[in-house]
Amino acid sequence: MEFQAIAERLQERLGDAIVAVESEAIDPWIEVAPARLMEVATALRDDPAWLFDYLHCISGVDLLETDPKKAAKTEWEPHLQVVYHLSSIRLKHRLVLKVHLPRWKEDQEGELPELASVASLWNTANWHEREVYDLCGVRFTNHPNLRRILCPEDWVGYPLRKDYEMPLEYHGIRGR
């Protein structure tokens, strides 16, 4: 199915769950409201016209301009993106889903933003969400085992956030 058709059908079915559709990009994407991610994901996986059975990747992107001069010129508010790359092995089509999240839950620094886990739909998401949690700091609710995966369990901070600073010391090992 072509991207345009998927997007239209999605909008038809789930209406305001779809926040934005970008079909001009190299990889066209659909932005989904964070609260309704599960609904959209379930539909995408189970609808016989879509059958997105294969989740390739979940990526966290931190959109924060740390340089105050440039920050004034940026068009976007600082936020986090979680990007889902889906495809269907049977129907051979692809889709990119995006979810915009605040960098901190209710703007309270240290409180991680929350997003529903899709691990119950695609098992791939289990480890990928752990990685996004570990490196970008997104708390996935209803995740079966949300622990750090690449960093040690007692690591502080979320290394792929743009304002992350390498710790000076970790268990007696010099950091910087």
């Binding site: 990747c57 990526s59 992107v61 790359h85």
Partner: peptide, 15 residues
């Protein structure tokens, strides 16, 4: 701005 690597073995190992 951001580079993300999707590793095949990462998913293969998770099984």
């Amino acid at each position: 701005w951001r580079v993300r690597v999707r590793s095949s073995c990462f998913s293969n190992l998770s099984v």
